[in-house]
């Protein structure tokens, strides 16, 4: 079974691959470590690129289609890089009851973005979150990770407008 025990080289000499290697090493290059390795990749690179999938597949000896299947199964992993700024709306039930659905619809209309999309100039990504766990502050949005909550739908729209125009 000692076929191909040689480790393949990382896609580039970017030092961040060392962190990816460290994760794989910690799991003994087990084929079960696909998800943990993808977590590390996303954490250090921000997204999961095609070359990183090939690297995981080659390093852990997991078939390409399987790695790809795992990476696309889970919501948390994004293949495309996100825009400079990320606007995220919580669509958990508590937020929904307090009007987050209206905020989502408004963003779609106002900025022409569907959840998961990024503007062509790569400035803004629009995401929806399942539940950020700040239900006490519902409805909740996140502007570049900063939680904004306890606002009415109209106040929320105003806040988003301000935040977006501030950048431009």
């Amino acid at each position: 079974m000692a076929l191909n025990q040689k480790r393949i080289a990382p896609p580039s000499d970017d030092r961040r691959w060392k962190l990816v290697d460290a994760t794989m090493r910690r799991y003994g290059y087990s084929s079960q470590a696909v998800i943990e390795t993808l977590h590390t990749i996303q954490e250090v690179f921000g997204n999961i690129s095609a070359e990183s999938l090939a690297y995981v597949s080659g390093s852990l000896n997991v078939p390409p289609s399987k790695v790809y299947g795992v990476a696309t199964f889970y919501n948390h992993f994004n293949m495309a890089p996100l825009g400079e700024h990320v606007l995220s709306v919580c669509t958990g039930t508590a937020c929904y009851v307090k009007g987050s659905g209206q905020v989502v619809d408004w963003i779609k209309e106002e900025y022409g973005l569907e959840p998961g999309q990024t503007t062509p100039d790569n400035k803004l990504s629009f995401m929806v979150a399942r539940c950020v766990g700040a239900c006490g502050l519902a409805p909740v949005i996140m502007l570049d990770g900063e939680v904004v909550g306890r606002l009415s739908v109209d106040e929320m729209k105003k806040r988003i407008k301000e935040w977006i125009s501030y950048d431009k």
Binding site: P63, S65, V67, Y68, T72
Partner: peptide
């Protein structure tokens, strides 16, 4: 024994792929 195929995505968006959706 090749495992060329697998599924990508999930739910109604599931699709059979070869390799990296190659």
């Amino acid at each position: 024994g090749a495992h060329t195929r697998d599924f990508r995505n999930r739910g109604i968006n599931t699709l059979v792929i070869t390799d990296f959706a190659t």
